[in-house]
Amino acid sequence: MDDIDSKILGLLRENGRITFGALGSMVGLSTNAAAARVRKLERSGVILGYRAVIADDAPDARLHGVGLEAFIDVRLRPDSDSDAFLAFVEDLSPVRDAVHVTGPYDYLLHVVVGDTEHLDALLRRLKTEAGAAQTQTRLALRVPR
């Protein structure tokens, strides 16, 4: 892999639907050469696939005006298993990060949800399905980018 391949990967990360023509012109290749490079990256396993990123699932959903970014402190019930909790929250699409912390709470979750209704549903799931005894939520008002 060379610098051109790296540039191609960066452009595909930003826009997986970019045309080979546009991709080629941005990295200094012809349409056919850009297509050949992408196919080579796919065959070699560097590019595993393409997917749609839905606004509510995007880490930068707030930038699109469709999400709330929040931080949730979670205290587990005494009978809850920490590893089971972590496995549960890692499978939830709104959860961007989950860290085990010291202090009065067990975990700090960084989440991005569509709106307060989605946040409420997430908090309910944490308490009814994941073993959370108590939560404290803080909304991000401004996020430096």
Rank of each mutant, 00 (worst) to 15 (best):
D3V: 12
D3L: 12
D5W: 06
S6E: 14
S6R: 15
S6T: 13
I8A: 07
L9C: 10
L9M: 10
L9D: 09
G10C: 11
L11Y: 13
L12S: 10
L12W: 05
R13T: 11
R13V: 12
E14Y: 03
N15P: 08
N15V: 02
N15K: 10
N15R: 10
R17A: 12
F20Q: 10
G21T: 11
A22G: 15
A22I: 01
G24W: 09
G24P: 15
V27F: 08
V27R: 05
S30I: 06
T31I: 01
A33S: 15
A34T: 04
A35H: 11
R37N: 10
V38L: 06
R39Y: 05
R39I: 03
K40Y: 09
K40M: 11
K40F: 04
L41H: 12
L41C: 10
E42R: 14
R43W: 00
R43P: 03
R43L: 03
V46A: 11
I47L: 05
L48F: 01
L48K: 15
R51I: 01
A52W: 00
V53E: 07
V53F: 00
I54W: 00
A55L: 02
A55K: 07
D56W: 00
D56Y: 00
D57C: 00
D57V: 01
D60H: 04
A61H: 01
R62W: 13
L63W: 07
H64W: 13
H64M: 06
H64P: 04
G67K: 04
L68F: 03
E69K: 15
A70L: 07
F71N: 03
F71L: 03
I72K: 04
V74N: 05
R75A: 14
L76R: 07
R77M: 11
D79S: 15
D79L: 07
D81F: 00
D83Q: 08
F85P: 05
F85G: 06
A87S: 14
F88H: 14
V89N: 05
V89L: 03
E90G: 00
L92C: 02
L92I: 03
S93P: 15
S93R: 11
P94R: 06
V95K: 03
V95H: 01
R96N: 05
R96C: 01
R96Q: 13
D97R: 15
D97Y: 02
D97G: 09
V99R: 14
V99D: 12
V101N: 07
G103K: 06
P104K: 01
Y105D: 09
D106P: 09
D106I: 03
D106V: 04
D106C: 04
Y107C: 01
L108P: 05
L109R: 04
H110Q: 14
V111G: 04
V112R: 10
V112F: 05
D115W: 00
D115S: 09
T116Q: 09
T116G: 10
E117Q: 13
E117D: 12
H118D: 13
L119V: 05
D120Q: 08
L122G: 08
L123C: 11
L123A: 05
L123T: 12
R124Y: 03
R124H: 10
L126A: 06
K127L: 03
T128E: 13
T128C: 00
E129K: 14
A130F: 10
A130R: 08
A132I: 05
A132F: 02
A132V: 05
A133G: 15
Q136E: 09
R138H: 13
R138N: 13
L139G: 06
A140D: 08
L141V: 15
L141A: 14
L141G: 15
P144V: 14
